[in-house]
Amino acid sequence: MKRALCVLVVGTGWLWGCTAVQGQEQVSFGRIKPPAPEQIRAQLFTWLKEQAKVDGEKLRQAETLWAAESRPVLARVAEILALGSPEAQRLLEQAANPEAIMPTEVPALIRQSADPFFKANLGLAYARLLCLRKAYEEALEVLKLVRPEHVVDPGAYYFYRAVAEHKTLNREETLRSVDRLFDQVEGVPERYFVLASLLKYDLQSWDGRKNLDYVARRMDEISGRLDNARGGPKTQAKQKEILDLLSKMIDQLEQQLQQQQAGAGQGGGGQGGGRSSGGPPGGGTTRSSGPATDSGILGGAGEGKVDMKELIKRPDLWGKLPEKERVKVLEAVRREYPPHIAEAIEAYLQQIAKSSEPR
């Protein structure tokens, strides 16, 4: 059951509007005005003194960090929160470290925090770093717990939320976040406006159906998960979905090809279209009648077409192929598929090879 709470944040001017509450996630409506720098500073230093209880030396360090006005406000706030909380510092350092293992759930420091300012801004800074690490699913789980009217940069909140939703193929949610960025946040930075517009344009070219475009996008998502050592059951389920979809698409293409060949054979009968005993119809290229081997991904055709069906059924073959064979397969993929799909397939195959390497 969804319930609406009309709220008015008195004395801050951050939000005039309503908040809808559904489950664990709270979504704000109305115009959100980014807080003025003096408001942010006042709240930040109140937190340092009353919650973090830092000494005079750390307060002076915080003043120095805050004075670096050429840097984004979220970056400065995150560093000052880390200065006052060793746990926050460790969390942000872990998220920024490309070698660190990603947590599988929202950290308790964010999830259990009772301080709205600390929770929202540490959560946003953490989610931003997760997006940079391609841990989009994890970033989205964090952002669902964050109230945009409590962050120092509402534009960053909706932008990174849209990015995480886009990369996890949540089409309608992405469009909704982009619209909220445009319609509800005052003074959206140009970089967010331009990039969010590109996200929206990209989704308008895909209607959400599970077609080749969907496969390419899902492969990109899986590559990101493998980059972060996320090869568990959830990633395997996503991989199986892709394998099943590609296998089904290839079956459909083969059926279409057989129908076309049958129609061509009927139309060309008696016009020199005979064939020698055991040869293919119309004198086409020959195919081996023997079973496929580990290096049998490239078909017997002289054009070097890829037997994607064989590769899809047995992705372990890719890891066993010699480098020369892999190069041939990649060249054939580039010839046979549109550029963005070919790039996704290449990235996926590279991840398979990487995951099969001895550690």
Score class of each variant (00 low, 15 high):
residue 141 E to N: 09
residue 124 L to D: 05
residue 100 A to W: 14
residue 102 M to W: 05
residue 114 A to H: 12
residue 169 L to P: 09
residue 142 V to G: 07
residue 172 E to K: 12
residue 157 Y to D: 10
residue 84 G to T: 10
residue 73 V to Y: 02
residue 85 S to H: 08
residue 188 V to F: 13
residue 115 D to A: 12
residue 136 Y to N: 01
residue 78 A to P: 00
residue 84 G to M: 08
residue 167 K to F: 05
residue 153 D to I: 01
residue 76 R to Q: 01
residue 157 Y to E: 04
residue 168 T to K: 13
residue 79 E to S: 12
residue 100 A to P: 11
residue 184 Q to T: 08
residue 115 D to N: 15
residue 130 L to S: 03
residue 167 K to R: 15
residue 78 A to D: 03
residue 131 C to G: 04
residue 169 L to W: 07
residue 189 P to H: 14
residue 90 R to K: 15
residue 125 A to P: 02
residue 190 E to Y: 06
residue 141 E to C: 03
residue 189 P to M: 11
residue 126 Y to D: 01
residue 126 Y to F: 12
residue 133 R to K: 09
residue 77 V to K: 13
residue 178 V to S: 11
residue 133 R to P: 00
residue 106 V to M: 07
residue 74 L to A: 15
residue 177 S to K: 02
residue 103 P to Q: 08
residue 130 L to D: 06
residue 106 V to S: 12
residue 173 E to F: 01
residue 159 F to R: 01
residue 140 L to S: 04
residue 91 L to R: 13
residue 136 Y to A: 01
residue 91 L to G: 07
residue 77 V to W: 02
residue 178 V to M: 08
residue 140 L to W: 06
residue 156 A to V: 02
residue 146 V to S: 00
residue 116 P to I: 02
residue 118 F to L: 13
residue 146 V to P: 04
residue 127 A to M: 09
residue 102 M to P: 00
residue 122 L to N: 09
residue 126 Y to L: 04
residue 141 E to R: 15
residue 177 S to R: 00
residue 109 L to H: 12
residue 124 L to W: 08
residue 154 P to D: 12
residue 143 L to I: 01
residue 138 E to R: 13
residue 184 Q to A: 12
residue 130 L to E: 05
residue 77 V to G: 10
residue 191 R to Q: 10
residue 124 L to I: 05
residue 80 I to Q: 07
residue 121 N to H: 06
residue 192 Y to F: 15
residue 146 V to M: 11
residue 190 E to D: 15
residue 92 L to C: 02
residue 187 G to C: 09
residue 138 E to K: 07
residue 72 P to R: 04
residue 149 E to I: 10
residue 119 K to G: 05
residue 147 R to T: 09
residue 96 A to W: 02
residue 141 E to F: 08
residue 166 H to S: 07
residue 161 R to P: 00
residue 128 R to H: 14
residue 113 S to R: 08
residue 105 E to Q: 15
residue 133 R to E: 02
residue 106 V to C: 13
residue 154 P to Y: 10
residue 96 A to H: 07
residue 123 G to L: 13
residue 118 F to T: 09
residue 101 I to E: 14
residue 161 R to C: 02
residue 118 F to Y: 15
residue 170 N to C: 04
residue 174 T to H: 00
residue 154 P to N: 05
residue 158 Y to Q: 01
residue 167 K to D: 04
residue 114 A to D: 15
residue 71 R to K: 11
residue 107 P to Y: 14
residue 155 G to I: 01
residue 103 P to I: 04
residue 72 P to Q: 03
residue 124 L to N: 13
residue 191 R to G: 01
residue 109 L to V: 14
residue 103 P to R: 10
residue 91 L to H: 09
residue 105 E to Y: 09
residue 98 P to V: 02
residue 84 G to S: 06
residue 134 K to C: 10
residue 185 V to A: 12
residue 98 P to A: 04
residue 186 E to C: 06
residue 191 R to A: 10
residue 155 G to W: 00
residue 161 R to L: 03
residue 104 T to Q: 14
residue 151 V to C: 15
residue 77 V to N: 08
residue 160 Y to A: 00
residue 127 A to N: 13
residue 91 L to V: 05
residue 191 R to L: 02
residue 112 Q to V: 00
residue 168 T to F: 12
residue 152 V to D: 11
residue 104 T to V: 03
residue 176 R to E: 10
residue 171 R to E: 06
residue 168 T to P: 11
residue 187 G to E: 15
residue 117 F to H: 07
residue 129 L to W: 07
residue 103 P to D: 11
residue 96 A to F: 05
residue 94 Q to E: 15
residue 146 V to E: 09
residue 130 L to F: 03
residue 179 D to C: 05
residue 108 A to S: 13
